[in-house]
């Protein structure tokens, strides 16, 4: 690690997870939820959905995240908060394997290989990334159904599946625009498509990066209503938010990231 990285790492104030009284009812709902139609994850290891230990992410010589450790219980909603540029998104990128990391990540007890986003998707952790990462020349409908690619190769199976049904019903206001090319949708509509695509992947853990960035207040509210609905159905949520106020209306657990690297 560079000098700069070391110094910043020393100042790094990533606090541990603090569970502020998680909802027992939610956890019960999560337990009741089927292990998954895919059967790819054989069993839940205890009640831990996600376990992150000593996670570090560096871009070249610059350390963005240093020694992050926290766990998220199955069925919980966890907010990762902190000022801009403190490494919140990098934590999520490191967990999902979008960037290479040091440290270990376990999803329902299974150790995740480093740098393998597809493994994560197949094992139930789906990312709704920052800037949405849609397929701009495909229709909104195509974007959503591609979420099903994590667990099926058959378009007929995908179309008639419960996860796809839930995803399409999630935002009724999106229905008139489903045939529209995704690149021409408004920012809010694109965010809805991104979340719907994540839900179509039938995730056990849905990780959402800055879901309200650049959205009007009313749209942001709708996004949070939808996330609350997904959570109420038993899906574990991880939300990265710069402004903790809104996230904490939904999340009972908070991981605060401070004094990270502004790179």
């Amino acid at each position: 690690m560079s000098k700069l990285g070391r110094r910043r790492a020393a100042a790094d104030g990533l606090s541990g997870a603090t569970d502020e009284g998680g909802s027992a009812a939610r956890e019960e709902a999560a337990r009741k939820r089927a292990v998954g139609e895919r059967g790819l994850v054989s069993s839940h290891a205890g009640d831990t959905a996600l376990k992150v230990a000593n996670l570090s992410v560096a871009y070249g010589n610059v350390t963005a995240v240093h020694d992050a450790s926290f766990t998220v219980a199955d069925g919980a909603a966890c907010a990762i908060t902190g000022p801009n540029g403190n490494g919140k998104s990098s934590i999520l990128m490191g967990i999902t394997g979008m960037v290479r990391r040091k440290g270990t990540v376990e999803v329902f007890g299974a150790a995740a290989p480093n740098g393998d986003v597809r493994w994560m998707a197949r094992h139930g952790l789906t990312l709704v990334p920052e800037r949405r990462q849609l397929y701009p020349d495909l229709s909104a409908w195509d974007n959503v159904i591609l979420g099903c690619y994590t667990w099926t190769r058959s378009i007929a199976t995908a179309r008639n599946s419960a996860p796809f049904g839930r995803a399409i019903e999630l935002f009724p206001e999106l229905k008139p625009h489903l045939r529209q090319v995704a690149g021409t949708l408004s920012g809010g509509q694109q965010q809805m498509v991104a979340i719907a695509r994540g839900l179509a992947a039938n995730p056990k853990i849905l990780a959402v990066d800055e879901p309200c960035l650049g959205l009007a207040e009313a749209v942001a509210q709708r996004v949070y209503e939808a996330l609350a609905g997904i959570h109420a159905d038993g899906t574990t949520l991880i939300i990265v938010e710069e402004a903790p106020k809104r996230a904490l209306t939904l999340c009972s657990q908070r991981v605060e990231v401070r004094n990270g690297v502004t790179a």
Binding site: V117, A121, L127, Q133, D137, T150
Partner: peptide, 12 residues
């Protein structure tokens, strides 16, 4: 269209 977006949903 979007290699990153493709990897997210498990496309190889």
């Amino acid at each position: 269209e979007n290699a990153l977006g493709a990897r997210i949903v498990g496309i190889d």
